[in-house]
Design a protein around this nucleic acid. Structure first.
Length: 638
DNA sequence: AAAAAAT
């Protein structure tokens, strides 16, 4: 219900207390008083040789931060917009600290306005910047900033299985160690109180230097699950020395050498990850950056010039920038593949393999690799085999559907009745955001036009809209200015939009995993949500999985739906398999496939991880049985 | 079949 969004300083204090920031001994010391202390007392060289970064050892080397207009020129949509125009174009040089003529162009000012640096083997933490804090974290009343970091009591029920050799103990509170104190503060500002199950495991796993393969859905806190340990280690270890690049001596343009690379399938998703990264990198030396297609490449080039330590990217644009010689992966120490199954579905495998295996990225033993995927079919297993080493497999139970905080309704609606039924639904509710999923881009346009013409403030998001339109749509939806958004699959996964009260599957997907992801846009952060699906004869292919899912989630199942499920199971027309990927063997099934196929440590085969959720597991469910197949003329119930 | 993603 109430998701515990905090208000006021008292509450914030509580949170700090629960974060262990007060420590066991002394009272809370405000960060701006602590930073000098820390810098002074921090051990001079914790790091292996080669981690000291010449770029940051002289203050102006990262030029541009003070010289730009500061943070204000980051658009409200969250991505960087071009800073004030420079007359000298690209040729900003270290000594031109005052380039742009901004009054805050000196290094001291730079470090006190929310940005830290790394100097002489020590982390020099930046001072607080209230304006930036408000932008990053909002305040307790800003609904568009509310986040699922809060109120995770519900999440304690979510089963987690960690398998592999030497699984470290999970971490039950955010604490230092293992987390860097600066990160802990930022977690506090973000009003995260308790690690989610995936974070409880991923933090110690990554902190121990291990690779990770995690089957977890969005809403499980997996973004924090990889950002926290990566940023924490980065804060502590400092930057890496960029390799000597022969080009740079005669090339005026600088090349970016990120130490962490995060790949994700959609532009909005990388943007969202980037925004999270900005929150947690606050006041540290780490400069998060983001690149994706559809946006002006030149402004992206300028922003990565200003710092690109943790890069979130869609594969296509990243390859482009590598080809242009503007990004090198030689310094990558952490690689994250988010929504890996989705990326393969979208045909990114060649580009991903190119990025990971055919460019200058360090090999699997020289980096840490984390893969996140909702499912673990054969092709993801292959990817894991190639990209990971001796990884720990983490399986996190389904969040949205099994935790029962989403009420799922299935309505029988013929196609030609959908519009009017939708109007009825929208008219009968008055608060919260409604997200409507359709199958085609054309339908998304048509439906949002229709809603607008019926005086509903609606917008739409799909791949044929310009990136600017997409971002505007998302923004106005988040803010509640257009509380209805019609979306295609582009918005099905990963997007974290607080306060989505209702998800309408105007068109049902044919893949149950897509359905799970879609309804997972509501009921987040322990809130309750409602989902309504319009079902008709065109959706027979999902009915069996759907009924099974509803049953698992203790939802009411309309009797007619049971009938359809029964008919489609035994009456022929059996829907086989799940689309393109996977192929048989161990992996085929969506939910059943999210398990470690490796044996304990060695390399025999056979599933090992205990299962949860009660669904059929590998080899069960679909495999045998009714292979009768699609022909079998069995007539359906209608 | 559609969607997404580099131009």
């Amino acid at each position: 219900m109430t998701n515990g969004i905090v208000n006021g300083a008292a509450e914030l204090e509580n949170q700090f207390a629960s974060l262990g920031i007060n420590g066991t001994k002394s009272a809370y010391v405000p960060p701006h008083l602590r930073s000098s202390q820390r810098a002074a007392s921090s051990p001079t060289n914790l790091n292996p040789i080669g981690w000291n970064d010449s770029r940051t050892s002289t203050p102006p080397a990262r030029g541009g931060y003070g010289g730009r207009g500061g943070y204000a020129d980051r658009g409200a949509s969250g991505h960087y917009s071009p800073g004030p125009r420079r007359t000298d174009g690209w040729s900003e040089r270290p000594q031109s600290a005052s380039v742009g003529g901004h009054p805050r162009g000196d290094s001291a000012a730079r470090e006190t306005f929310g940005y830290g640096t790394w100097r002489d083997g020590a982390h020099v933490v930046g001072g607080r910047n209230m304006r930036l804090e408000k932008e990053l974290y909002g305040d307790a009343t800003d609904p568009s900033k509310q986040h699922s970091g809060i109120n995770f009591e519900k999440y304690d029920d979510i089963p987690v299985e960690a398998t592999g050799a030497g699984v470290p103990e999970p971490l039950n509170v955010f604490s230092s160690p293992p987390l860097d104190p600066v990160l802990l503060e930022n977690i506090g500002y973000s009003r995260y109180t308790t690690p989610t199950p995936v974070q409880k495991y991923s933090i110690p796993i990554v902190a121990a230097g291990r690779d990770l393969m995690a089957c977890a859905q969005t809403g499980s806190g997996k973004t924090g699950g990889f950002l926290f340990p990566i940023l924490s280690a980065s804060f502590t270890n400092g930057p890496r020395q960029p390799p000597v690049d022969t080009q740079s001596s005669y090339n005026r343009t600088r090349k970016a050498y990120p130490t962490a690379l995060i790949l994700a399938p959609t532009r909005e998703l990388v943007n969202q990850i980037h925004e999270e990264a900005r929150k947690f990198a606050y006041r540290s030396w780490v400069r998060p950056a983001v690149v994706y297609g559809g946006a002006d490449i030149n402004s992206q080039l300028r922003t990565i010039e200003r710092g690109c330590d943790l890069l979130s990217a869609t594969p296509g644009r990243l390859v482009d920038l590598i080809e242009r010689g503007r990004i090198s992966l030689a310094n990558v120490r952490y690689l994250v593949l988010d929504e890996a199954d989705r990326m393969l579905d979208m045909g990114f495998e060649p580009q991903i393999r190119r990025i990971v295996q055919e460019e200058d990225m360090p090999g699997v033993h020289e980096r840490q690799t984390l893969m996140f995927s909702a499912t673990f079919p054969r092709d993801i297993q292959m990817l894991a085999k190639d990209f990971l080493k001796d990884y720990i497999f983490l399986s996190v139970g389904r969040v949205g559907s099994t935790s029962e905080n989403i009420t799922q309704k299935i309505e029988y609606v013929e196609d030609h009745d959908k519009r009017s039924v939708l109007l009825d639904i929208l008219a009968s509710q008055n608060t919260g955001l409604t997200l409507i999923f359709v199958e085609t881009k054309r339908m998304a346009d048509m439906l949002s036009d229709f809603l607008l013409s019926n005086s509903f403030a609606a917008t739409s998001i799909h791949g044929d809209r310009t990136q600017r339109e997409r971002e505007t749509a998302l923004q106005t939806f988040r803010q509640g200015r257009t509380p209805i958004m019609v979306a295609t699959a582009v918005a099905a996964r990963g997007l974290d939009i607080p306060n989505v009260m209702h998800v309408v599957n105007y068109d049902l997907p044919s893949d149950i995993d897509d359905y799970v992801h879609r309804i997972g846009r509501t009921g987040r952060a322990g809130n309750t949500g409602v989902s309504t699906a319009f079902f008709n004869r065109g959706n027979k292919n999902i009915v069996r999985d759907l009924v099974e899912l509803l049953r698992e989630a203790n939802q009411d199942i309309p009797p007619w739906l049971e009938t359809v499920a029964h008919e489609s199971t035994f009456g022929g027309g059996g829907y086989r398999g799940r689309g393109s990927r996977g192929g048989g063997g161990g992996g085929g099934r969506g939910r059943g496939a999210s398990r470690d196929y490796r044996p304990s440590g060695g390399f025999h085969s056979g599933p090992r991880a205990p299962s949860f959720g009660g669904g059929p597991q590998i080899g069960g469910g679909y495999g045998g049985g009714y292979s009768g197949g699609s022909a079998g003329g069995g007539q359906s119930w209608w």
